[in-house]
Design a protein around this nucleic acid. Structure first.
Lengths: 198, 198, 198, 198
DNA sequence: AATGAATGAGGATTCATTCAT
DNA sequence: TATGAATGAATCCTCATTCAT
């Protein structure tokens, strides 16, 4: 019943590892990590479950590998942000760059957004939380008013959530991204010039 | 594991249903819906799994019942909001009331925030999405600029996320709530007086 | 939700036991003994499972009680048949009476016909098999040819199966019964006058 | 219970699927479908329940696969019978061939005979009923008297039941088979030359 | 005459994982 | 570079039965 595979295979070669990551991320984002079984992933790829274990040691490792590949731009951004002076321009530029980084890794961020409970229990959960904290510390001023700190954090959240929440508003995706970015920049700007706000 | 039950039983009666809901929500919020097994819930309550099935037909029904009990205030708020004129004062008042409603159902909202992927596949997922859409339509103006619409949606998200994200910022919870509310009200106010912003 | 029972109850009295038997037989015949749960029976009667246990000690006892009530005519027939001379007339008369007895207990026989595997494991299985053997010994002649013995047994089986197998043949039930009886009587008659048949 | 596996393992290879079918049919026929658990089947084979699921998607699929494998001769017989002229010789020959087909699949037919209630609720129930109807339509004449139609159906039933009912009559199985066949052929012959019977 | 609450045993099914080939 | 076959542990859920009230 298998063994002949009448022709629909072919054209792949050493790209299986990559294909596993692609399909896995797609399914993880769509259904959640726990609800997505290795059987399902394997079936989508037309290979056996055991084949997945040739490429990855565990289910979690699949997710970790995706995470590592896709969050590198974010790491570099943080690195860069820390090296800059902590002024408003830097913060604005960080948000701008972050907006682009998010666009490139949208499905992964959608996954993380929607599977926070799962993330918390996985090793990458901590990694990610750390990164978020570092981002926050670049953006916010720990001596500012509570309100202004909320503004900064809200800016980050707005960007994360922004991509998915405007789903049913019909507009050009690029326009949406810009609108989201504008609101985030505004929030940070207000926080910076703030104080008198309260 | 049984046989000893160190004395803390007794004195309950018709409260089992309620106790199931309490423990379930706690665990669902902590570990996620899928990762929380009925065995675990039962053990926390010192009853058998089968006892859960006396009170609820399925695992999902436990969640649904919690949801129905805890989101009633939100329903009433939406009802009220729709009946008011669509002006800035109304919107601000809705946010104020919403902030209080959220405080009362914090664990449930934390659960929903962190288990969106799961929610999407559950019957209440749709219910909740509907409610959020209605909230959004009370808050935003569909003819406003994209940016201002983002502001409104961001206001809602800020309130949802706000309570959990300030976790490691040491402050009085009530102060945090007020800070979050203030930022949300600001966003909506800017969106309302906005236009020139774009 | 219960406790008020808005009026659809009433008009029963001490007949619950009987009603349990009726509903149980109906469901047993329709779905089989194993697939019919006490919950289902209770729901059909609008009582609790526990109520069934007031009237019967076990699930099996419900079936046994039905069986005992409905097979009394058959017992009496066997008693009578044994006391008669073992000639053709007796056999024919036994079949005639048996046909009527079957009509009165049709659902039970349908149940037994379709749940033989279950019956075998239940206490009444043996009882029933005994009775069938006695019937067989009234009808057949142990010294007759194998073929003639098959004729007699076939006569009995024809009567058992007859009622249900003609389901999709459209005819008056009483006509069917007579046709079935006629074939059975023929078979026994042939067996009796037989020998030369082979 | 594991750990020793007294030596009788090994030497199997691709035959597990077949062995599952064999054991399953044996147990289904002996105890009924519902009363036979997958645990039981697995234990008889000295494998885990999960192993069964490698070979079959569900419990029902095990039964279906047995059914499909064992009823093929019957299908072919129906095919053949339909293509022949509808005369007495054909009918007799069909019965003769049917008798042999039944012998080859005796345990399955015993199972079906004794688990009709279960069969009705399973997908194969319909399939089988269809086949029986086709057999009936080859054997009987729809314009004959009701009595003669009963004779034909009785012929089929006699063959089905025949094998199991003569259990306690001590004789060579092949002799029994012939006796049963003879009675069935007789019934059909009478039905054919019948008319004057009514 | 019946209920509400619970239990213990067991059901089918799914999962991540392993390993010899 | 993969597969075929299997496992062990866990899942949700259902059942017959019990008992205090």
């Amino acid at each position: 019943m298998n063994g002949t595979m009448g022709g629909t295979k072919r054209q792949r070669r050493g790209d299986t590892r990559q294909r596993i990551q692609d399909v896995a991320l797609e399914l993880f984002a769509e259904q959640g990590y726990e609800k997505t079984s290795l059987r399902e992933i394997a079936e989508h790829l037309d290979v056996t479950k055991a084949a997945l274990y040739y490429h990855f040691k565990t289910k979690e490792e699949i997710l970790v590998s995706i995470f590592e590949d896709l969050t590198r731009p974010m790491d570099e951004l943080i690195e860069w942000g820390k090296a800059q002076p902590h002024n408003l321009e830097t913060k604005q530029e960080v948000l701008r760059r972050y907006s682009e980084a998010l666009t490139g890794a949208a499905p992964l961020f959608r996954f993380m957004q929607e599977n926070q409970a799962t993330m918390r229990e996985l090793s990458i959960g901590h990694q990610f939380k750390d990164r978020m904290m570092q981002m926050r510390d670049i953006i916010r001023d720990p001596d500012a008013s509570l309100t202004d700190q909320v503004r900064c954090i809200s800016a980050l959240f707005t960007m994360h959530a922004g991509m998915f929440v405007l789903q049913d508003v019909e507009s050009d995706p690029e326009d949406k991204r810009k609108a989201v970015l504008e609101v985030a920049v505004d929030l940070v700007t207000q926080a910076h010039t703030g104080a008198r706000a309260s």
